[in-house]
């Protein structure tokens, strides 16, 4: 059987076969891992924003507990404290809370005490601080002592520390999840490269014995797996961005829950995913291929 063939029109064929039955499975697994990694990154951003929101709220407020002295009634002491606090620079508003609010606070421990008129329940003064130059706890305390009031200032420092610690935990957890998923993606690609090299041992062996350098052969696998990972990264990123957008649409400005608010800008975090996936795949493929070729 003869054929017409014009050498002048010949174009070199790729050294590696173009189609591999395992490619779709690899693409699916890497896409799922990229999806999870993007979700971890989105979760970290949302957690960070939530923590900032909580600490911002707490930083802008202080609570003062006022205990009446001598014959002064609790309501009168609270009113005097609110007046003294309102005059402190860095305080935008000071408001004595109603007696019922104080009863509400102790109800979980003492039950309903609203009918015990003689019980010396301290009153609370809610203080809103100037966001730009908030008054310090020491300034508030000084103002109260200046009026001869027996009061304790709670500037929420203890809670802010807890919230900051919680935010750090959220961030660290998201970072660890992200790194674990990236490592898993790398391991999957390394495994696929090993399988690919084993399946294409004939090609590798011929190229090796015909004088191809190790880097030349590894480069073939590197390029192939980087391409697959880039596509998978794109699919995973799109999926995660789509889910993020859905959460944002369902939950409005607060996201699906005020605990983890998602902003539109957060969705941009998925953009580098295809590039990062390709990079991880390329490095994993290169290292695996080089190690295996050395063993030939």
């Amino acid at each position: 059987m003869s054929e017409s063939f014009d050498p002048a029109r010949w174009r070199p064929a790729p050294f590696l076969p173009q189609d591999d039955a395992r490619d779709p499975a690899l693409l699916f697994v890497v896409a799922v891992l990229c999806f999870l990694a993007c979700l971890a990154a989105l979760g970290a951003l949302a957690g960070d924003r939530a923590a900032h929101g909580w600490s911002g709220q707490l930083l802008g407020e202080a609570t003062v507990i006022v205990r009446p002295r001598g014959g002064e009634t609790p309501d009168a002491a609270a009113a005097r404290a609110a007046e003294a606090l309102a005059a402190v620079p860095g305080v935008s508003e000071a408001r004595a809370l109603e007696r019922e609010k104080a009863y509400d606070l102790i109800r979980p421990w003492l039950g309903d005490v609203s009918d015990l008129e003689d019980l010396p329940v301290p009153r609370l003064v809610s203080v809103s601080l100037d966001a730009k130059a908030p008054a310090t706890a020491a300034q508030l305390d000084k103002a109260l002592k200046g009026q001869g009031l027996d009061a304790v200032v709670d500037d929420h420092t203890r809670w802010i520390k807890d919230i900051r610690r919680a935010a750090d935990v959220v961030r660290a957890t998201a970072a660890v999840v992200f790194l674990l998923v990236a490592a898993a993606a790398g391991a999957v690609v390394a495994f696929a490269t090993r399988a690919g090299l084993a399946a294409r041992r004939d090609v590798v062996e011929v190229l090796h014995l015909t004088g191809a350098e190790d880097g030349q052969i590894a480069g073939l696998f590197e390029l192939r797996f980087a391409r697959i990972a880039a596509v998978a990264g794109g699919i995973g990123a799109l999926g995660a961005a789509g889910l993020g957008a859905l959460l944002r649409l369902i939950g409005g400005g607060q996201g699906v829950t005020p605990a983890l608010p998602v902003a539109w800008l957060d969705l941009l975090v998925v953009l580098p995913c295809p590039l990062l996936a390709a990079l991880v795949a390329a490095v994993a493929a290169r290292l695996t291929a080089r190690r295996l070729i050395k063993g030939l």
Binding site: W10, R11, P17, T210
Partner: peptide
């Protein structure tokens, strides 16, 4: 050790491609 996915022409040209020669030089 022929590569089954490459044509006879591509198999023959393999050492020249690996050595970095241009196709126009050896076709």
């Amino acid at each position: 050790l022929l590569l089954d996915h490459l044509s006879a022409f591509d198999n023959t040209a393999l050492p020249l491609r690996i050595a970095g020669h241009k196709a126009s030089e050896y076709r």
